[in-house]
């Protein structure tokens, strides 16, 4: 049980009249990078918000680091990056980091907070922009400031919603190296969402999602072998087709039963 950072069973989320997530059952192992992949609008962000504890109307079981999701003690143990960079545009990068550091661990000397800010700035390669206003940075740079905020403290679980969107290939590679480094040296668990399938190959495990359901929960290798494909993208498409076919047969049998 404690080997899992996240454990869900019968997880259902409604947004307004719509059911966005339907009876999800999955686990996220500790100390690994789990990729959450699927097309835009399939419920990735809602699932991440449920894990972080900011999503309303969550039913079913959802345990995070041994507590029900949203438990107050989890708030300093999870680092969360939303899809849109959530930083103060009218503060410098350093001021942003020092403020959030003060919220995470209050009452520490200013020198400690400064040191902490330096560390995460180096992590996301923004040391040279420390004194720039966040609002004057490019979209990709602001995204990295937002990521740096999530790296403050020593989060045991990092929930990253599309952290590499809009970044150039070099930066993307560097960030994935950083993610692997965080998992390997700090023993942290990472849940990273993406709708770019080639990023899937960099994850230890994958959760493939489509229309509020989980199509597969496996390693990239096992997925390719199981579906007899060469890439995760092909595997995903195969699974989507299979699910659609199964859905159709289900509907026709149901239709036949009602006409009978």
């Amino acid at each position: 049980m404690m080997n899992y950072a996240v454990q869900a069973d019968g997880l259902t989320v409604a947004r307004g009249p719509r059911t966005v997530l339907r009876h999800l059952r999955f686990t996220v192992p500790r100390g690994q990078i789990t990729g959450l992949l699927g097309p835009s609008g399939c419920g990735k962000s809602t699932l991440m918000r449920s894990i972080v504890g900011t999503q309303a109307k969550v039913t079913g079981t959802l345990n995070v680091l041994g507590h029900p999701a949203g438990h107050p003690t989890l708030r300093s143990r999870i680092g969360y990056v939303t899809q849109a960079p959530s930083v103060y545009d009218d503060l410098t990068v350093r001021q942003n980091l020092e403020y959030f550091a003060a919220i995470l661990a209050p009452g520490r000397p200013a020198a400690d907070r400064r040191h902490e800010a330096d560390r995460v700035l180096a992590d996301v390669d923004l040391t040279s922009h420390a004194d720039a206003l966040a609002g004057n940075l490019s979209g990709g740079q602001r995204g990295r400031v937002s990521l740096a905020v999530a790296l403050l403290g020593t989060p045991e679980l990092l929930v990253l919603d599309e952290p590499t969107v809009g970044l150039d290939p070099v930066l993307r590679r560097d960030l994935w190296t950083l993610f692997h480094d965080i998992a390997a040296t700090r023993g942290a668990t990472l849940l990273v969402s993406s709708h770019v399938m080639d990023e899937a190959e960099r994850c230890h495990r994958l959760l493939l999602m489509r229309e509020g359901e989980i199509l597969a929960d496996d390693t990239p290798d096992a997925l390719r072998t199981r579906t007899g494909t060469d890439t995760v993208e092909a595997a995903f498409l195969r699974l989507v087709d299979e699910a659609a076919a199964a859905h159709r047969t289900q509907q026709t049998t149901r239709a036949q039963e009602t006409t009978r």
């Binding site: 972080v52 504890g53 900011t54 107050p72 708030r75 300093s76 999870i78 969360y80 939303t82 849109a84 960079p85 959530s86 930083v87 103060y88 545009d89 959030f100 919220i103 995470l104 905020v149």
Partner: peptide, 13 residues
């Protein structure tokens, strides 16, 4: 609207 409120409320504030 900037998402900083959501971030803060997900933190121990």
């Amino acid at each position: 609207t900037s998402g900083t409120l959501e971030r803060l409320l997900a933190m121990p504030l």
